[in-house]
Design a binder for these strands. Structure first.
Length: 263
DNA sequence: GATACGTACGGTAGACTCAG
DNA sequence: CTGAGTCTACCGTACGTATC
């Protein structure tokens, strides 16, 4: 990806306009604010301000953003703080980065792409149940494929761009038992990795380090059940919400047990 | 053409500050 | 005292630009 005018990265934006972007950021902040230190929040807020021209996209170089924090109100941050903030933001799923190159191939500034807020509320009873009673699992498949077409990360000439790789191509980072379970419903490595990414984000958010795969599979069973009854509009969002509920519960149980042990 | 310097990136080590 | 948070100062890579 070559650097250029920010308008040329418009297609990477996941937001309809600045208002939509701001609403999502508000939701994100409620969810992840505690994960960042004071200085990191200064860096994040400045990055968000640099992402207003094209909603959710920032092409400014690190130095520009860092020096802007110095000019603003004296609470300047260092380049290291900015980089740490980016690492955390990527880990919680707030944004992703793409490297850009110059015409000659050398490295240029990064492009920061904010993600939409994942969490979805539980569907209410009056939600439209206009989906087929049969499984709508393939719908999720289509969602992913549509995302692939529109997110702009896949270069035209990339080998196998349109080839769907089955579950056996799933990254080694994804536990085998999770892959084996999910492949019964989605035999596509990119979908399985996408679901596993949500598991990581949610586990990290709730400070969970044990039995993650077990919980992830249980949550997936809940998702499958709900899909079967046609109650899911956004499979990724629903799965993320289920994960959060389960990890939150586990976090509180562990907390209680620790307190009990120390007494 | 050769050289020096600048600009990007990612990464690490060590030192400092401060709260608990 | 300890650990978290933060900063500065390095390293290496790759290329562009200015100067001799």
């Amino acid at each position: 990806m070559q650097i250029g005018n920010i308008e040329s990265f418009k297609h990477l934006s996941q937001f309809t306009d600045t208002r939509d972007f701001n609403n999502n950021i508000e939701q994100w902040m409620l969810d992840i604010k505690a994960s960042f230190t004071k200085a990191e929040l200064v860096a994040l807020k400045r990055l968000i301000r640099f992402s207003a021209k094209v909603a959710g996209i920032c092409t400014a170089k690190i130095g520009t953003i860092v020096s802007a924090t110095h000019k603003a109100n004296g609470t300047g941050i260092s380049r290291s703080t900015f980089k740490r903030m980016i690492i955390k933001a990527k880990k919680v799923g707030l944004l992703l980065t793409r490297e850009t190159t110059r015409k000659n191939g050398s490295k240029s500034s990064n492009v920061y792409i904010f993600n939409r807020f994942y969490e979805q509320p539980e569907p209410s009873k009056d939600d439209k149940l206009n989906q087929p009673k049969t499984s709508n699992l393939p719908k999720a498949n289509n969602q992913t494929n549509n995302k692939r077409k529109t997110d702009g990360f896949y270069k035209q000439n990339e080998i196998g761009q349109n080839t769907i790789l089955d579950a056996s191509f799933t990254s080694e980072k994804v536990p085998l038992n999770f892959t084996d379970f999910v492949r019964n419903f989605y035999d596509d490595n990119s979908i399985i990795e996408e679901y596993w990414k949500l598991v990581n984000i949610s586990a990290y958010k709730h400070d969970i380090t044990e039995n993650i795969t077990e919980t992830a599979i249980k949550a997936f069973k809940v998702l499958v059940r709900k899909i079967k009854f046609g109650k899911v509009n956004n499979t990724y969002g629903y799965y993320y919400a289920v994960l959060n509920r389960k990890f939150r519960k586990k976090y509180l149980v562990d907390l209680f047990n620790d307190a009990w042990d120390t007494n």
